[in-house]
């Protein structure tokens, strides 16, 4: 009996001194056949099925993702890529194909070199391998722009920033 009271006391103490995190339905075990299958096969129990009353927010988010219609790649990755590369002038962006190409950009503190980036959003899912960024660098030699290698790690660093921002965006939507 003492152990049971200890359990209760621990619960009360923790709940009294801390702000907890709200848990979703899929964080609990279930014997619901539908839920079990959806979890086992990678489907999202929160947006499966048919909404017969009310607004299907999950479908809205999936279709629009806050980026508007016509986006055929993952909307979070797409928006995150656009935002991450927004410090450079944009040359073209194809939301259907997931390709973003910037124009040449010379940083203010290094006017003898310039950069251009191409980003490919590859996946409809929010995956860590769903985006690829390629940075090109040129330096000014004798009045001519000539190709030069970008520093190692630039590509993956930009990809990581895109992924971080995509996760933030997803978190914002999930919290709505």
């Amino acid at each position: 009996m003492n152990a049971k009271f200890t359990l209760l006391a621990l619960a009360l103490i923790l709940s009294a001194c801390a702000s907890g995190r709200l848990q979703e339905r899929d964080e609990f075990a279930t014997d619901d056949q539908r839920e079990l299958i959806l979890r086992a096969t990678g489907a999202n129990p929160r947006d499966a099925g048919l909404v017969i009353f009310g607004v299907d927010r999950s479908r809205q988010q999936a279709e629009q993702g806050g980026a508007g219609g016509g986006v055929s790649v993952n909307a979070f990755l797409w928006r995150a890529t656009l935002e991450t590369l927004s410090f450079m002038p944009l040359a073209s962006a194809d939301p259907a194909g997931g390709v973003i190409i910037t124009d040449w950009y010379a940083p203010p503190n290094a006017e003898n070199e310039r950069f251009k980036a191409q980003a490919y959003v590859l996946s409809r899912q929010l995956r860590s391998d769903g985006v690829r960024v390629q940075v090109f660098r040129q330096v000014l030699r004798g009045g001519q722009w000539v190709d030069a290698p970008a520093s190692a790690g630039t590509n993956s660093e930009l990809e990581d920033r895109v992924l971080a921002r995509a996760r933030e965006l997803r978190g914002l939507v999930a919290a709505r």
């Binding site: 539908r34 607004v55 919290a175």
Partner: peptide
């Protein structure tokens, strides 16, 4: 948990 917006009820039918 951040502040949240009100959400109207949705009724979803699923199955297995």
């Amino acid at each position: 948990t951040p502040a949240v917006a009100q959400t109207a009820p949705t009724v979803r039918i699923g199955g297995s």
